[in-house]
Design a binder for these strands. Structure first.
Lengths: 323, 323
DNA sequence: ACGATCTAGGTCAGGTCCTGTCCTAGATCG
DNA sequence: CGATCTAGGACAGGACCTGACCTAGATCGT
């Protein structure tokens, strides 16, 4: 024919897409849809299987083909709405790095945003704006758009230009070679080699503005320490104004760790129903809300700021209820 | 050769996977990786383009190929970690349906879970367990695993068997033909035709246990009303014990709507800095935490239960801070 | 128990189309 | 201006894909 391209490949992709719908497909129906003979469908199924995609078949009258879970991930074929849903989900997930898969999450986001059609991108943006940062005041939340750009540049080893606002408010323009994105606590940090200052720097991503990939690929530079994550946290603890929280909870240590989503080693068991929380936290408001919503009695020993905030919060709650 | 399958298709898939990495690939490097001649790579790129995937090429010394955003979604080729990240993201997104894409989100989750390799499924489960329901006490949160099963059965039009615990605590076993999953407020509901009772029923998904697809496909039944979502909400409001919240916030109506993530018509403007919230809410704890974390002064007029809860919360906060 | 309906797969002939080689043209960067 | 990319035409040989036909085995409903 004329525009045939590679009929077989296109058909295989379409077949994979059909089989990803969670239902059974009789061979004859697939043959109709793909406009080939049933024999060819069987051969296509074989091909997919040899490619590693486990196509399950059930025999008999109600039988048919379906794609099962296998050894490797097959290519995901998503319709528009599903793609948008995934993008939104990844964005919120990236905004709340509490998982242990933060980096993969941002990588997936970058991969998706790279190929996301513009019209869908718009829908993601509007939906993402509507989505609330669950922590309330949206100012501390991270812009996933920027994260995606940073992740993309990091993966591509592309030199990057952006505006940075330091802790003291001074604004500078930077040209860096991004090395790694690291999530620590509830924030993202970019470890990069600053070309102007000729040294390694750690940037808080929420202080980065207007990131522009230059398109220039640079050879990968060896990160300063053995571990990038360790380097970032070391840098941070040496300068960041974090609080050291000490509190006693009327809750078992394991349950507290699970419900608060903090690492288990931050909790010391006192008895079966009591434990002590001891760890760093940069935002008191966040921790206070989390502790209160637990529903169990607790006592805060340190820092004084957290005690003060709780008192203030209690006052606001009382005023709201009794006015 | 022996195991060749369809060399071309496999290569196209691999090429697509390579191009999804956010970087530029020179044709020669692609040729090496794919173990074909550069000419064939060019032809493969052409094929992908004719299949609808916009492969961008930049010329000159630093040139190369990369996949750009096009008209349609290309198949996403994910590595293990990325797949896990997406699954976790979708699960949390499905647990907090505040978006407007709840259904697509669950559909995507079902699609992904269908093909997720078992070892990755384990990782998703452990990570998902570690992920905190941001609302605190995990009892009200939805199990994404069950949601995925329900979504899968709904899409496949498969008859479904599960255990159901009614509001009064009585446990029954059901055999239904699932019709649609609907998110309302912070909960999921399953609209289904109950085969034993021969009528349509709405089930709260968090009261569903041990869902088992029977594997039996049934022809699609016409949903009762014009709109499934409308039917569900009508059913709910006629019986559910929801609260009618009335509160005054020291915040502009638009900002309040944005920060609280509630529909704009729930807020009535009083002046530039004040608005009145008026709407239904099924969980007081959730709303209380959201209002408090806003940081602005507010007054709760109704319901009395919310006022009582705020008083209790204030007491707990005070005790935690001053003991 | 039997027939209907599905998957599974072997064989064969015909023709499509895919591949590597060789070559020229155009774009871009230093 | 030269190096290094992409872009693409021409050609020969061979791989492989398709449809048609047929047989075997599994499963379900009557």
């Amino acid at each position: 024919m004329m525009d045939s391209v590679n009929t077989t490949s296109a058909r295989l992709l379409r077949l994979l897409s059909l089989l990803q719908t969670p239902r059974e497909w009789p061979g004859t129906e697939l043959a109709e849809r793909l406009e080939v003979s049933p024999r060819t469908v069987r051969r296509d199924v074989d091909r997919l299987r040899e490619l590693g995609y486990p196509v399950q078949a059930t025999m008999g009258t109600t039988g048919g083909y379906r794609l099962a879970a296998g050894k490797a991930m097959p290519p995901l074929l998503l319709d528009d709405e599903e793609a948008v849903a995934i993008a939104v989900g990844l964005r919120t997930a990236a905004s709340h790095p509490v998982d242990g898969i933060e980096e993969a999450s941002v990588r997936a986001l970058a991969k998706l945003e790279q190929v996301l059609p513009p019209r869908l991108r718009h829908r993601v943006n509007t939906l993402g704006a509507a989505t609330v940062s669950v922590l309330g005041n949206g100012e501390s939340s991270m812009d996933p758009e920027i994260l995606a750009v940073l992740a993309s540049a990091t993966a591509a080893q592309e030199r990057l230009r952006f505006a940075y606002e330091a802790a003291d408010g001074t604004r500078t323009r930077r040209l860096v070679e991004p090395c790694r994105l690291v999530a620590s606590g509830r924030r993202w940090y970019l470890l990069a080699y600053d070309n102007d200052r000729d040294d390694w720097r750690v940037f808080r991503t929420d202080r980065i503005g207007e990131p522009r990939p230059t398109g220039v690929r640079v050879p990968s530079r060896v990160p300063p320490g053995e571990d990038a994550a360790a380097f970032v946290t070391r840098k941070l603890y040496s300068s960041a104004p974090t609080y050291e929280v000490v509190a006693t909870l009327r809750l078992s240590a394991t349950e507290a760790s699970r419900k608060l989503g903090l690492p288990a080693d931050a909790f010391h068991r006192i008895d079966d129903r009591t434990c002590r929380l001891h760890g760093p936290s940069d935002t008191l408001e966040w921790l206070a809300a989390r502790l209160l919503v637990l529903g169990c009695p607790f006592e805060v020993h340190d820092p004084p700021e957290l005690r003060a905030y709780l008192v203030d919060l209690a006052a606001r709650a009382t005023r709201a209820a009794t006015s």
